[in-house]
Amino acid sequence: MSQKGFTLWFTGLSGAGKTTLAHIVEAEMRKHNLRVEILDGDVVRTNLSKGLGFSKEDRDTNIRRIGFVCHLLSRNGVAAISAAISPYREIRDEVRKTIGDFVEVYVHCPLEVCAQRDVKGLYAKAMAGEIPSFTGVSDPYEEPLNPEVVVDSSKETPEVSAKKILKKLEELGYLPKTEEVYSEEEEEEVKRRLEELGYF
């Protein structure tokens, strides 16, 4: 099967788990021999969008740039994955329109959970007023209205979320369909029984 390019667009608060999910999904896609590229928000800001700040205008420019690269990659048969907060609905929708083959994943996670995780220590600083215009604290986050996939990282494991995303990609024809004879639970049961007999 020849690869159809598309953009998998993660959106959600800082610390919601976008990067983690992007890497799990990327690994699964590579098992299917797909060409994949991740554009991670934090990484992009150190090169492609170096110098941009966090004003509404700069944020929009950042997302448009990521969207532009995703578009180039997608139309050349690559699965482009964007993992950036991308807080504004209007710009996300603009990028969606430009790319066409666009799959939006809303990584939902309540602000207080993200703040509690605070992997990068940014929430503490934002709440102390040290970072102005911090999404969810002092800057708005606009939830997507019609994302293709919604995952909730406060209630499900990254593996479960990733499976949801991969399933949607199969449904949409971006990933080859796996023949589903066994449900997830059944597959675990099969593994267990094969393990018990030393076959797995």
């Binding site: 098992k31 299917h32 080859p176 796996t178 023949e179 004879v181 066994y182 094969l194 076959y199 797995f200």
Partner: peptide, 16 residues
């Protein structure tokens, strides 16, 4: 066998 790989991949599936 009891397990195999999906085409062009290292992903395991259980033949049935």
């Amino acid at each position: 066998g009891f397990l195999d790989l999906q085409p062009n991949s290292y992903k395991i599936y259980f033949p049935n």
